[in-house]
């Protein structure tokens, strides 16, 4: 076809999340280089680093959070933010756990838990799109409310779920041919959403809305619907993560996931998601959380006190965002 020649001449329009294509790819490449360099350095520094056991532990550690990062990235692209994800993860655990203890089979209990999480998202979406509050305040309130709900449901004490049937525990603890199911689920979700975000029409509207809401409205896009459903998506994925945690730990603690939202947002931002909307990729965000995870693991292996870890992670976030800002300024 005659188009193929033209196509060679032009950059593809949607790489790097529709925007700044080459830059997006460059950022992802940069993150990969940093992660690899860190891994190589660490494998010299600690004999335990480059073992399958440690790699597996690292992958496990960020796989479940990674599912939440996927939803957060989409929400950041639409110009929103969700501070309630940590609470919602916990909420799903607690709801699923108590349903199970009430005698429901764990699969149904999990579905109800995920649906309840989606409902939290729908509530936030309602306040954002119908009442007209912003995402930050709405989700801040939701964070506290949902955490409170978790305490109410559990009366403040962890639910012990050791009676969960083994086939359900397998989700969080089992493996297929040596690869934990958790990692398989995580990779599947990442691949699916990365593809959808780059290619699907529905997600294209997310970029339009996040890039310029007014222009999107003036293009006939129902931006409020878009924002509503993305908010629901983010909470639903957090709910899914909560159910997987439940299966993995065989318990539901009402204080689980406190502060998780900051880690999630940091990962997405390090991976290139813009807090003002319109830009971001799933792949980048996953690299962001991988980087944070490798750093945490390195600090532990190097015997750095836990007290230092948060500080160092904060500095990494600041550095990543500064570099991003600097590069963006140079471009314009």
């Amino acid at each position: 076809m005659s188009l193929s020649k033209e196509e060679e001449l032009v950059a593809p329009p949607v790489r790097g999340g529709l925007s700044l294509g080459r830059f997006g790819a460059m950022r992802e490449a940069g993150l990969i280089v940093i992660i690899l360099a860190l891994c190589v350095a660490m494998s010299f520094a600690s004999p335990h680093f480059a073992t399958w056991g440690n790699v597996r532990a690292m992958l496990m550690s960020f796989s479940i959070e990674g599912i939440v990062v996927v939803g957060m990235t989409v929400l950041l692209i639409v110009g929103g933010i969700d501070l309630a994800v940590g609470s919602v993860v916990c909420f799903a655990m607690v709801v699923g756990g108590s349903m199970f203890l009430m005698g429901l089979d764990p699969w149904t209990a999990s579905l109800i838990a995920i649906a309840a999480s989606a409902l939290v998202g729908a509530g936030m979406g309602f306040f954002v799109t119908v009442v007209g509050l912003n995402h930050f305040i709405t989700s801040l309130a939701a964070m506290v409310i949902v955490r409170g709900l978790c305490l109410v449901i559990t009366k403040g004490t962890p639910l012990s779920l050791f009676t969960l049937p083994p086939e359900f525990k397998a989700i969080g603890q089992g493996e297929f041919q040596g690869v934990p199911y958790v990692i398989i689920i995580f990779v599947a979700i990442v691949v699916l959403f990365d593809f959808l975000l780059r290619r699907a029409t529905a997600f294209r509207k997310v970029f339009y809305t996040g890039s310029n809401e007014k222009a999107a409205e003036y293009s006939g896009i129902r931006t409020r619907q878009v924002k509503f459903w993305v908010t629901v998506l983010c909470s639903t994925l957090a709910g899914l993560a909560g159910v997987i945690y439940m299966s993995r730990f065989g318990a539901a603690t009402p204080t689980f996931g406190v502060g998780m939202e900051l880690n999630i947002i940091a990962a997405a931002v390090i991976g290139g998601a813009s807090l003002t909307g319109g830009a971001g990729t799933i792949f980048g965000a996953i690299l962001g959380i991988a980087l944070l995870s490798v750093v945490t693991s390195s600090l532990i292996l190097l015997d750095v006190s836990v007290y230092w870890q948060d500080m160092i992670k904060g500095c990494i976030l600041l550095a990543a965002v500064s570099i991003d800002h600097f590069l963006n300024r140079r471009k314009s």
Binding site: P13, V14, A200, T201, R204, Y208, S211, S219
Partner: peptide, 30 residues
């Protein structure tokens, strides 16, 4: 303010008004 998506590609801007026309099986036909 309301005419173009500055940080999105030219192609994505042109498509914004009627995505359905460019959609095959839920995906944007590049």
């Amino acid at each position: 303010h309301s005419g173009v998506f500055l940080d999105l590609s030219i192609a994505a801007n042109v498509s914004a008004l009627d995505l359905r026309k460019l959609t095959r099986n839920g995906l944007v036909d590049r």
